[in-house]
Amino acid sequence: MSSNQDNTVEHEEYYVPEQSKLPIFASIGLFLTVWGAANWLNGDANGPMYFFAGSLMFAFVLWNWFSIVISENIQGLNSPQLKKSYVIGMAWFIFSEVMFFAAFFGALFYVRSLAGPWLAGEGEQGLGNDLIWPGYEHEWPVMTTPDMAANGDSATMRGPEQNMSNPGLANWLGWLPFWNTAILLTSSVTCHIAHGALKKDNRRQFNIWLGLTVLLGIAFIILQIEEYVHAYNEMGLTLESGIYGATFFLLTGFHGAHVTLGTFMLLVMFLRSVLKGHFKSDDHFGFESASWYWHFVDVVWVGLFLYVYVFG
């Protein structure tokens, strides 16, 4: 939005939506989803039913919600001011997502650099080592957990058999995380090219580059699933593999979930463009917010690649 626009005009065009049934039904859907999930986890037979019913309802409401927002914009109901509110909303939503990942990165750094050495008896904080976890030595990845060091074969909290860490630069070409990084970085570039094409009103180029971005996203997800299957079946690396398994799967897992959501968003944008001819060269925030989200998951991946894999 240009900054020299007359403020007064913006305000008089402000659009307050009529009453809306969306929020209350979204709340009910969300509630049923989490209520079902909690019951399910606690072993209640009705849990899955509530969970799936709630998820369906939630997805249905969100679908409608987005449809309404899109059609309002197409009808020209959205003032420049409201459009700016959407931009601000998306930007700070992404910031909140950054902080969500920060919690898990923080946990990783703390355990790896502080708590681990203390468990192994380092410094004043390590006094308990001899008494509680005799024989534990800290290394990262934690392959031998404190439980294994102290209790040997009777240990219940066991580390992984193998880990995902850097196999040395020479072996990178056969190392899946490297290819995943290449794919995701490339997809960020293709997404950016698509954006440039849209701004130049080149619809064909936009569709091609956006479609390519979606394909790269899907490729990433497939490779990530492949990596998980490999980890579970051949590397003895699971969620239960001590703190390494926990941090590895939660960080990469939540990232993977975000990539999945991002790919879905881009796919919707692709279909909107191809099937409905949505987006104009100067009015395409739906696509732009999806692309921001995509760049965000890309940046998180760079952090993961460095701290979970390369320096793992």
Binding site: A115, W133, T145, I243, A246, F249
Partner: peptide, 11 residues
Amino acid sequence: TSFFDAAGGGD
């Protein structure tokens, strides 16, 4: 997982 369990290397 063992985020908060020292037996698995958490804290």
